[in-house]
């Protein structure tokens, strides 16, 4: 369904400039050129604002150390990006690659399981009537307001009690919880999964779990992808929890590893290069996953906005 939608969107986009030149085009609300231009300028400024740091990072990562401070920060000098990447990957037996792999495991696994849990929870809150439903939902909503950093220290003390600090689980388990995911899944489920359909599935003899996984999940895909994306990005960027929990370098996610390196730049100047290149490489997975999932994601975000 969504594949069809993007296909039909593409030609439309190509046609649009032609339409706007023709004042008699049968298009509904028409913007004045002034408003349109203003909007474009605002967008342009913001795009520039967001892209310049990334551009700077790309340029800086492509420079050798001696050229880093001496050449124009926004333009390339001798292009030694690949050489720099080679050095980074070789440094300390490839510990950087290990960090990237760890991040992928924490974020990928955490987001996947977290999404399933949030999806089931949201679906249950939307589709089953039981006493205390609203109370539970409100408590979950309250959870959205509690910043994850505020929970890190209590989590550390709890994990200390069961001797799980400085393990994979100490970062992975807390990552599975997503109050925002539950909220979004509930809103989306109540809007897009018709009760009649669940009724029909029940009549056909499907159990509740089977109904959820074979029927409802399919209708909830946009919301679930959104939850997955949000959760993936949140875990990938999560820094404070690993900082508090982990001591073993081989368990570090890439954020913590780069931060640790950055704090030693005064002692080991070469680390400055590695931090830059490492930062550049560490955003690539996020960009890829956004590009792959953005069409679902757009649908999910606007769910319930027209109603």
């Amino acid at each position: 369904m969504s594949a069809m939608k993007t296909d039909s969107e593409r030609p439309a986009r190509r046609v649009r400039p032609v339409q706007s030149k023709n004042p008699h085009a049968p298009r509904a609300p028409r913007e004045s050129p002034l408003a349109r231009g203003g909007a474009l300028i605002v967008m342009g400024v913001f795009t520039l604002y967001f892209l310049v740091p990334i551009w700077w990072l790309l340029v800086a990562a492509s420079k050798s150390r001696s050229q880093f401070t001496t050449t124009n920060p926004l333009w390339f000098a001798d292009f030694s990006l690949f050489e720099n990447i080679g050095n980074l990957v070789a440094y300390r037996d490839g510990v950087y690659l290990k960090w990237m792999l760890n991040s992928a495991l924490y974020a990928g696994g955490g987001a996947l399981i977290g999404t399933i849990i949030a999806g089931m929870c949201g679906y249950a809150l939307a589709k089953y009537n039981f006493p205390g439903r609203e109370l539970i939902f409100n408590v979950v909503l309250g959870g959205v307001l509690v910043p994850a950093t505020a929970l890190a220290l209590p989590l550390f003390l709890i994990f200390s009690q069961i001797s799980l600090t400085n393990t994979f689980w100490s970062v992975f388990l807390p990552s599975l919880v997503s109050p925002f995911g539950v909220y979004l899944a509930r809103i989306y489920a109540s809007a897009s999964v018709p009760d009649e359909l669940i009724e029909a599935a029940r009549l056909d003899g499907a159990g509740e779990v089977r109904t959820f996984f074979t029927v409802s999940v399919r209708m909830m895909v946009p919301a679930l992808v959104t939850v997955f994306l949000f959760q993936f990005v949140a875990i990938w960027n999560n820094f404070f929890l690993p900082l508090i929990m982990l001591r073993d370098e081989t368990l570090f996610p890439v954020t913590l590893g780069l931060y640790a390196w950055n704090s030693q730049v005064n002692q080991i100047p070469v680390l400055r290069d590695y931090v830059l290149i490492g930062a550049l490489l560490s955003i690539i997975p996020l960009i890829i996953i956004f590009l792959l999932l953005q069409r679902f994601w757009r649908n999910g975000l606007s769910a319930g906005s027209v109603k």
Partner: peptide, 25 residues
């Protein structure tokens, strides 16, 4: 060997947390 950022970058706070939790290195 266990590692982390430099002291004021978070490792001192971690030491204090660990002393509280009774699992300091």
């Amino acid at each position: 060997v266990q590692t982390g950022p430099n002291g004021n970058g978070g490792t001192y706070q971690n030491f204090f947390n660990q002393l509280k939790a009774g699992n300091a290195p």
